[in-house]
Amino acid sequence: MCSGRVDLDFVLRAFANGMEGVFIGGCRLNECNYTTHGNYHALNMVLLCKRIMEHIGLNPERLRIAFMSSGEGNLFAEEVNDFTRKVKELGPIGASEENDLEALRPRIQEVRELVPYIKMAEREKLESRLESEAQYEGLFTAEEIDRLFREVVSYYIDPEKCQACGICARRCPAEAIVGGKNRIHVIDQDSCIKCGTCLEVCPPKFGAVQEIMGEPVPPPIPEEERTIERKSKSA
């Protein structure tokens, strides 16, 4: 397993659990044990997560990544001691933030639900290989994160247009589309991971799936109104 295996969601989960700091140790940059240089991915994830933490009002200093080789026990000790000192200084979540953990938890939870979306939106940057520390600051900006959350998309099936062909339901990776034969399909917004597969696969002749940004998703059509009355072909 590589440090690049550390998921954004792992870090958020730890904070949601009340952990006061998260430290990630990776191999030295450019000295990959595999051929993948996944420690750069870990670094990018941390840089992104720090911005997200800023965005939701969690002190980004509570997250740190350091790179070292297995032969550098002294460096590990130094880094960990320093980070421990820092976390103690920051105190429990809330002590160096405007809100306490209870107030922050729903915000963290909101972000956790958006992790798949964030991975897709930031895919390219999360994979990039930064050449110097000078570039760390600029990889993700506060404005970018604001926009990321402001422009979160939702997907909605227009009941007028849905022909219950079932393609979207079959293809949805999150099994978030409720449908059935001759039943207008509805996206369960809580399960939806915003991958956009439904939009992509909905036959153009129907064009039932809509991408919604910046406004609330219309409520789902009531169960009893979902049956589609079809005229028989012979009629």
């Binding site: 397993m1 590589c2 690049g4 295996r5 550390v6 998921d7 954004l8 969601d9 595999y34 993948t36 996944g38 991915h41 994830m45 798949p116 979306y117 991975k119 897709m120 895919r123 999360l126 994979e127 990776p173 999150a174 991971i193 991958c195």
Partner: peptide
């Protein structure tokens, strides 16, 4: 596959899983 698990992190839907180090 060498089991570094990078793909697992990249996958937005959780379809690809590094066995023995699953989410």
């Amino acid at each position: 596959c060498k089991g570094d698990g990078l793909c697992n992190v990249k996958c937005p839907t959780g379809a690809i899983v590094l066995k023995h180090f699953t989410d």
